[in-house]
Structure formats: C-alpha cells, structure tokens
Amino acid sequence: MSTSNSSQYASRFHQGQGFYSFSLGNLTVTSVSDGFLVFDDPQAALAPKADSQEFDTILRKKFLSSDTAYTHINTLLIEGNGKKVLIDNGCGDSLGPSAGLLVKHLANAGVKASEIDIVLVSHAHPDHIFGTITRTGEHVFPNAHYMISKEEWDFWTDPNIKISSPFGDEMARAAILGAQRHLKAIEDRVSFFDSEQEIMPGIRAIRAFGHTPGMMAFIITSNRKRLIYTADALHHFVVTLARPDWELGVDNDPVEAIVTRMRLLEKITSVEAPLVHVPHFPFPGIGHIREEHAGYVWEPVVWEW
C-alpha cells in the first residue's frame, strides 16, 4: 500500500459530503465514507496467482489501470427501532489523511459520534475497526456497545497470532498490534454473536469466514425489503466479480474465502436479488450484482439527490 499516493490524492480532492441515505422498508440506511486508500501493486492484493495478462485485460475493459488501485472505504449506518447502528468504523487516524473521515461524514449526515448506540464489527482488519479509539486512547463512539463474532475476537486476541500480508511483514505486525489495541479497548463493552443469529430485530449475521477466520456479513431486513452487507467477501468491483474463483492476497485463508464468496454471490443473485452494500466498491457501494457469462457484474444504484 502506498501511503504517499493516498496522501497525494487526499490533498487534491475533497468532493461531496461523504454520505448517501435511502430508505429500506421502515429503516433509514446511510452509506458513510471513511475515505479511500491507494495501492501500488493491485495484483499482489487482488489476484497474486492470476495470469497477469488476463488481470490487465479485465481492468482495461473497464478503463482501469493495473498500475494502481483506488480502494473506497464505505461503512453502513442503520437508523430505526430507536437505535443508530453502525457496521464497521473505518481506519481512524491509522492509515493517513485519505482515510479516517467517518466521524466528519457522519456529522455531515446529521449524526454525532456520541449518538451511535451499537457498532457491529464484521472483522478486525485496520480499515474496519481502527476507528474505535484515538491515538491517545479516547473512544471515538463513547456511548456505543460493540458486537463481534466470537471466532473473530478469539483469533485476533490470541497472543500467538500469526498472519501474512501482501504488503509485507511490517504491515502484518501493525495489523495485529492495532487490532489487539482496539479490541482491548472494548473489553468492557462488547458482546458476541454467532452466524445465522438475529443480532437485533431486522439484522442477521451470515458466516463469511476466509478473509479472516471469523468475519461476518449481515442481512438487514425491513418490511420485506432486504440489504446484504457483504463485508470483505467481495473486494474489487471488477476483478473479484469477473473472476470470483481467483485467490486474493488479502485473504487469511484464500481457499475458504473463495467458497464463501461463491456462496454469497449465489445468495445475492437468487430470485430475490437483494440490494447489496460492499465496503470497498465505489462509493456509495450500493447496488445489485447479476450473473454475466462465467462471472458477475456490478450494477450500482442510480444516484438520487
């Protein structure tokens, strides 16, 4: 990952207000941007074992470069039933000036950090949980209760944990130490849930192991309308859908992650064709996925002001 590239982009572009709201049944749902990251070697992260020519061709067909990858960071706010629920809390101040914008963008949407009641954690990677506490240890969401799968908690809090990273050993160590720091900070305000469990009215967890050992996706349902938050079972809006069978360098267990990805895509493209929110697809990351040839295609929602 290139921090310098991300910083350069951040200094040049300050577009929009960073949120997109819509109705889902009786709920108000808002995609809130935490910013973005830029990667220097997309193939190392997205398809390390793939044929380079095919990788380049897939990107070129969508007018994208294989030299760098621009990765969005989208979180999801759900308002209803007297609660404000946030799914994942972004990077915080850990990954440079192009990210860590969640609190600012929530405020743009009229929501204070202190108003968040519950934070659901899909998994404990830096761009999904490092927005928990500041560098000096203050809680970013001071009144929030946290919920995470027990498998994910146990993996990251294991003192003997080992992970690899396509970005090198230093990044892997930083991810481990950071996850342990942020998880320790919520020891007294966390509870655990299982896959297929209804965590609260209208929100159910879906097992999505592979990217991390305990990652969960979520199905949000209201008045017969459904939205699936995929977490990082899906990653790049072109590559991951065109070749969902390719291993990702950012997956802890690439083989299990492929099984999860294929199962989730089958669920998404079933006859019900639910709305989908994907954390790393182009903001606001809201749309539908349809089958095309041997893979899948992203159909973003038409933006409504």
Rank of each mutant, 00 (worst) to 15 (best):
residue 33 S to Q: 09
residue 151 E to Q: 05
residue 199 I to P: 10
residue 46 L to M: 04
residue 76 L to E: 07
residue 121 V to G: 07
residue 80 G to C: 05
residue 46 L to G: 05
residue 131 G to Q: 12
residue 12 R to Y: 00
residue 29 V to K: 06
residue 255 V to Q: 15
residue 259 V to D: 11
residue 6 S to L: 09
residue 2 S to H: 05
residue 224 R to Y: 14
residue 90 G to L: 12
residue 249 G to W: 11
residue 58 I to L: 05
residue 266 E to R: 14
residue 265 L to E: 00
residue 283 F to K: 12
residue 171 M to F: 15
residue 92 G to I: 01
residue 231 A to S: 15
residue 242 A to W: 00
residue 198 E to F: 05
residue 146 Y to R: 08
residue 67 D to V: 00
residue 37 L to K: 10
residue 122 S to G: 15
residue 157 T to A: 02
residue 209 F to T: 06
residue 5 N to W: 07
residue 149 S to G: 10
residue 48 P to S: 07
residue 269 T to C: 12
residue 165 S to A: 13
residue 137 G to M: 06
residue 29 V to T: 13
residue 293 H to F: 03
residue 59 L to I: 01
residue 197 Q to F: 11
residue 55 F to P: 00
residue 2 S to W: 03
residue 80 G to S: 07
residue 31 S to I: 04
residue 295 G to N: 04
residue 44 A to L: 14
residue 243 R to C: 11
residue 131 G to A: 15
residue 283 F to T: 06
residue 140 V to C: 12
residue 197 Q to R: 11
residue 159 P to M: 11
residue 176 I to G: 10
residue 42 P to V: 10
residue 257 A to L: 08
residue 204 R to T: 15
residue 113 A to G: 09
residue 292 E to D: 08
residue 204 R to P: 00
residue 209 F to D: 14
residue 20 Y to Q: 00
residue 291 E to S: 09
residue 285 G to P: 05
residue 148 I to D: 02
residue 134 T to R: 13
residue 118 I to Y: 03
residue 124 A to Y: 01
residue 168 G to K: 11
residue 85 V to R: 07
residue 23 S to H: 14
residue 156 W to S: 06
residue 151 E to K: 07
residue 70 Y to F: 13
